[in-house]
Computed example of a mutant assay.
Amino acid sequence: MHARAVAAITTALLGTAGLLLPGSAARAGDGDERPLVIGHRGASAYAPENTLASIDKAARLGIPWVENDVQRTKDGELVVIHDDSLQRTTDVEEVFPCRTSWEVKDYTAAEIARLDAGSWFGRQYAGARVPTLDAYMRRVEHNHQKLLLEIKNPELYPGIEQQTLKVLGNDGWLDPQHLTDRLVVQSFSADSLRIVHDLKPAVRTSFLGRPRVSALPAYARFTDGINPSFGSISTGYVAAVHALTGPHGKPLNVFTWTVNDADTARQVTRYGVDGIITNEPDVVRAALQAP
């Protein structure tokens, strides 16, 4: 570990904030201004989360980065949905009243395709569907957007990492341009990210959570970023992450979640984060652009 990393980690352990260099929030990365504004499950304050309508809304707001969640159906189709249960965001209980499970993994793709994933949010979204990952990727490409893709609950879906990479490859998202500038895979599971890194080392990855500072060098072997909740970070912690170099030869990034107000957006920007994940991307963007 080089001297800068040692110094930054020591500072973070002591709780000192002084190592963050001015302008670090605009560090060279993928060509975007820092911090990036990332639409959480699309523009999910304004349209039903993880639907095509939600990423279309983000596109209309001029938000290039969106985030989603990927799970797998009973018959092996990858779908974009956050909860492992279908109850909260679909009418599964009405469509299948005799079933005893509402878990995504217990329904086929055809069954999930019958569900209304929009009415819970507003009548104008009635008939919105849970998209397949393939359909979702085609819409992201059509919108010229960039994607922070979360592999959700990988412990429920053995082999989901390889399957996700296959879909991404089939949809043209594993070419150099997408890998450099438009795709990051994240997960709360370090094991899942190691699998992604081993299968396709060129894919950028980020770990969801806040590892101990002393553990960060181990994460830097297989991930390019650390994505903690906004309430768990400080200037010193962000500096400690930035001090380490990831598997693609660049300083680790920090994307923080879920920030939905201007004051918090400005606060985490002062910490030096590289990205802000938000349900209200227009609010966060306006806060960052204000003089």
Rank of each mutant, 00 (worst) to 15 (best):
D32E: 10
A126L: 08
V184R: 02
N68E: 06
A243H: 10
G231T: 14
T264W: 00
A243I: 08
R88S: 05
E103G: 03
D191E: 11
S229G: 12
N143H: 05
S54T: 02
T10A: 13
K105Y: 03
S206L: 11
I55R: 06
A290L: 02
S229K: 14
A25P: 03
D75T: 08
L148M: 02
G169Y: 13
T205F: 07
A117K: 03
Y237H: 14
Q289L: 10
L147Y: 02
G231E: 05
V79L: 00
A202S: 15
Y157M: 05
P97A: 08
L133G: 01
R41W: 13
Y46V: 12
V37E: 01
N153F: 07
E93C: 11
R138M: 04
T223N: 13
G23M: 01
L244E: 08
T258W: 03
P22E: 09
F121S: 09
L199C: 15
D83V: 08
T223H: 10
H248W: 01
D32I: 00
T16E: 15
I63D: 06
V238W: 04
D171F: 03
T180S: 13
V185L: 10
N279E: 11
P247D: 09
E33T: 05
A128C: 10
D171A: 04
L179K: 05
L52G: 00
A8M: 10
H248R: 09
M1L: 11
G122M: 15
P158A: 14
V238L: 11
A5M: 07
E33W: 01
D274W: 00
A3T: 10
I195T: 06
G127C: 14
A215I: 09
A53D: 04
V92N: 04
T205S: 09
R60K: 14
S24C: 13
Y219F: 09
G159R: 13
L193Q: 13
R221W: 12
